[in-house]
Each structure stands twice: as structure tokens, then as C-alpha cells.
């Protein structure tokens, strides 16, 4: 296949950026989207040009490194898939594909399609954990966890911290990401002692990072490669309001 690409090129955080046209030749339908970018980059290197910078690592949809906005949709058109899991057979010969980075104030562009998502790490640092030191844990089966609760905790825990939810949200809100972690820990007995402190601290950190607020549009859920439900956002709201009422 031959494809016409319009790729966002930006030399650095402060540099101006623009969409640049490239032609991707010799694209095989079985290639993944990032492999297609590899091919384009090989060509650019041969022509002595600067290759397109993009993040990727596991290339199987689990590490959360990859991610760009493909024809206006984060991670592209496929449901439940990351950019590295999108295959070129989804496109047709001669298609034009616009590729942009995830955009948000809290995700400054590092270069081209690479953005700095460390704000999400800082949200976790604010409370996305259970405080337990190595060695201090009780025997694992002392606390039974109802299977359904364990399963729904797992549903939320699948988040790969890719940031597509932020990219898709018209407000660049990190609610789905934050809510997923709060729900993961909040559903388990192990997460109860810190449940309310956690939600308050994480929400405050989220605001501090410059993410927007949630208008309940659910674009995040639709693009989330792990199909994490916005029901988790409602849950976060509830926990937060309870925390506010409980505060002395």
C-alpha cells in the first residue's frame, strides 16, 4: 500500500510545530501502525532526514508507551486497541492519515509525537497505592475478597496509563485514569484504610497538573484501549463527596 501521511513535527517543547506531508510506500497490510512508522523512518534516515520521534516499546498493547491521534481519534479507529495494535489493513491504499500527538497542557510535547506524561505518575504518587512496607504483609488468604469485587477491581486495574483518555477528552481531563486507580484500590479491602484520603489527594493532584474537569462525555471510555468504564468516574465523584462530608 501507499499512504499519504500528515505528521506533526515539532523539534522541542518550545519550538513551533506543523503538519508535514510524507508518503509511506511499501506498506504491508499486516504491519502494525508503529511498524508503518518504522518503515517511514527508515526511508527518512536513508534520505538523511530526521526520523519521526514516537514512543513505543512492548508493541502488544500493554506498556502504554505508544499513542498518537490518528485521523482525529486517539489510538485510531479500532475499539479496545492501542496504536501498536492497530494494523494497516484497517486502511486502504491511497488513504490520507493525519497523525498528531496527544495534546494537553499537562502533556507537554517533547518532540514530534512524543509527549511527557509524567503528570500521570505524579497523580499516582499522590495516593495511588496502599501503604504497606515490604515484609509487613499478613498471610494472603487472611482477607477473603468476593470474586465479583476482585473482578471489578481488575477491570479498573487494567489501565495502561497511556493517556488516550486525556487526549480524547474535550477538556483534557484525566478523570478516567485517576478514577480507574481509585476504583481499583477502593474496591478491595486492602484499599479501605486510605480510601478517602486517597481520593482527595489524587483529585487535588490532578487539578494541580492542569488537567481539565469532566463533562461526562465518555469519549475517554470509547478510546480507552482497555475499555475502562466511566462508571469509575461516578464512583470517584461519590468517594470524593463522601470524603468532603467526612472531613472535620
Amino acid at each position: 500500500m501507499t499512504l499519504n501521511l500528515k505528521v506533526w513535527r515539532q523539534a522541542g517543547a518550545e519550538a513551533p510545530g506543523r503538519l508535514v506531508d510524507y508518503v509511506a510506500r511499501g506498506i504491508h497490510p499486516d504491519m502494525s501502525f508503529v511498524e508503518m512508522l518504522d518503515v517511514v523512518n527508515e526511508d527518512l534516515i536513508r534520505q538523511g532526514q530526521d526520523p519521526i520521534a514516537f514512543d513505543s516499546d512492548c508493541r502488544e498493547g500493554i506498556c502504554g508507551s505508544c499513542g498518537c491521534v490518528i485521523n482525529g481519534i486517539p489510538h485510531g479507529p479500532d475499539a479496545g486497541a492501542t496504536t501498536c495494535q492497530l494494523h494497516m489493513r484497517r486502511f486502504r491504499d491511497g488513504d490520507t492519515i493525519v497523525i498528531e500527538p496527544f495534546r494537553a497542557r499537562a502533556f507537554p510535547i517533547v518532540k514530534d509525537l512524543v509527549v511527557d506524561r509524567s503528570a500521570l505518575d505524579r497523580i499516582i504518587a499522590a495516593g495511588g497505592y496502599v501503604s504497606v512496607n515490604a515484609g509487613s504483609a499478613p498471610e494472603a488468604n487472611v482477607v477473603p475478597v468476593p470474586r465479583a469485587e476482585a473482578e471489578s477491581a481488575m477491570d479498573a486495574a487494567q489501565c495502561i496509563q497511556c493517556g488516550a483518555c486525556v487526549a480524547a477528552c474535550k477538556n483534557a481531563a484525566a478523570h478516567l485514569f485517576t478514577a480507574a486507580k481509585i476504583a481499583h484500590l477502593g474496591r478491595l479491602p486492602q484499599g479501605q484504610p486510605e480510601r478517602y484520603v486517597r481520593v482527595v489527594r489524587m483529585v487535588e493532584q490532578m487539578d494541580e497538573e492542569g488537567f481539565g474537569t469532566c463533562s461526562n462525555e465518555g469519549e475517554c471510555e470509547a478510546v480507552c484501549p482497555k475499555s475502562i468504564s466511566i462508571a469509575n468516574i461516578a464512583r470517584m465523584h461519590r468517594d470524593y463527596l463522601k470524603a468532603a462530608l467526612l472531613a472535620k
Binding site: 504497606v132 515484609g135 494472603a140 477473603p144 486492602q190
Partner: peptide, 18 residues
């Protein structure tokens, strides 16, 4: 033990045990 205490959502049986 450590991982369960951290909230790792391991698969469980219906009785709630691992």
C-alpha cells in the same frame, strides 16, 4: 502476601480466596 496487601487483584475463587 506482599502483593495481595498492595492490592494486586489476583484471580479469586467464589469463596473469596486466591
Amino acid at each position: 502476601d506482599q502483593c495481595v496487601a498492595q492490592g494486586v487483584p489476583f484471580a479469586r475463587e467464589y469463596g473469596g480466596l486466591l
